[in-house]
Nucleic acid binder design. Structure first.
Lengths: 219, 219
DNA sequence: AAGTGTGGTTACTCAAGCGTAACCTTACGC
DNA sequence: GCGTAAGGTTACGCTTGAGTAACCACACTT
């Protein structure tokens, strides 16, 4: 007699599902639990239960807790980046592209309020995920910087790569910040938030594109 | 004979220090360790060792791990807010105040690179600390919003509280984002970063203050 | 009908690390 | 010089939860 007890599964109870389906269910559950509890406080048991499956299956398909979190981050991140990229076609004017990109971004966050936003917030801190996150942000920054660069060249001007990067970084940061605000204000309208962001971003960027700069007083 | 072994402390080895001093040493150590490892991966043992003291003393003075983290956050947060508040005297023009505030902010972050920035990043995610962090940010947002409001009234204009809050939120977010960038680029100059931020922020804000707005195309 | 691989389960192990009980010792007020 | 509180230590206990070993069963080939 083995030391493991046996259970006669009198009822075959539930459906067997193909791996791809189960993986998505698990990711859905993981995103919910990680969001509500935070990475640290979330337990694999709870995630498994929320997914309606047993823990070893989670390990079998998605690996360790960290790997699972990275998988969540990756899925959500890809969805978001695609939503934005799909909206901001490269053949439009700079302001039109920026506007559509922002609208897509805030629309996405609004639709995934407690999903994406909290995941994203989580990832900023803990080293293991910082890399994954940094890569996502880097793509966004690159896109924005490219946009600005394009607009500048169209006006016959040129700016150092670092300057562009920093401005892009600031714009992305401002957007993230407003995304947090949006996630915390369930009544707020994503579209309106996008307009507000556009106001801040474009009016500033527009000035910069025109060549005006602010200089510190008397050194 | 007790079950605890005794050690004849042949050498009285090290100095006894008053509580206030030890607390600061512990906080210094905690900030370093939390920064390097992250809240989750940091262990109380390591913090105690880094502080050159034994674990029970940490518990005796600063309480549980969470309480310790909050204490770190609180100390660093207070230092920062005071640095900013001290720099941005309320009797100056809006742009001058903004400039000095930003300079103080980036100066602080530059000086505490791996101290403050990572602590701050940590706190964003995990629920227990979100409150503490939110309070800090709320103060900053309030200050910025107040500044904008003041400048607007001086020009005889008025804007809804929500609009102000959102713009302030965006500016604070952009600054935080650049602070992250600064923390990740050891060679970068805080002063220059502040100037860059000022360019983005002020040129945009200035336009807004003048009354120009961006509107979405054909609804 | 036997064989195999994929989907599934229960019931563990085992390390990490928070928090503490019990005990020592020196400074200082009285 | 003596009591006591404040500063300090060692050596645990005990929970939590990540990760796994061992087994089950159905759906398919062949």
């Amino acid at each position: 007699m083995s030391r493991y007890a046996r259970k006669v599964s009198s009822t075959p109870t539930f459906k067997r599902l193909p791996r791809a389906v189960r993986e998505q269910q698990m990711l859905d559950a993981a995103v919910r639990v990680f969001s509500r509890r935070g990475f640290h406080a979330a337990s694999m048991d709870e995630i498994a239960e929320a997914a309606g499956i047993s823990k070893p299956m989670v390990y079998a398909y998605l690996g360790t807790k960290e790997e699972l979190f990275v998988a969540c981050l990756h899925r959500e991140g890809t969805r978001m980046t695609e939503a934005i990229a799909g909206a901001a076609a490269p053949d439009l004017d700079a302001d039109e592209r920026l506007w559509r990109g922002l609208r897509a971004f805030f629309g996405f966050v609004g639709a995934h309020r407690d999903g994406w936003a909290v995941l994203y917030r989580q990832a900023r801190g803990s080293q293991p995920f910082a890399g994954e996150l940094a890569a996502m942000r880097a793509r966004l920054v690159e896109v924005v910087a490219g946009m600005l660069d394009h607009a500048l060249r169209a006006r016959g001007r040129e700016v150092s790569a670092t300057d562009l990067e920093v401005v892009a970084y600031a714009l992305v940061g401002a957007s993230e910040s407003l995304a947090d605000w949006l996630a915390d204000h369930p009544e707020a309208d994503p579209e309106k938030t996008a307009t507000r962001m556009m106001n801040v971003a474009w009016l500033g960027a527009d000035q910069l594109l025109r060549g005006s700069t602010w200089r510190p007083p008397q050194q």
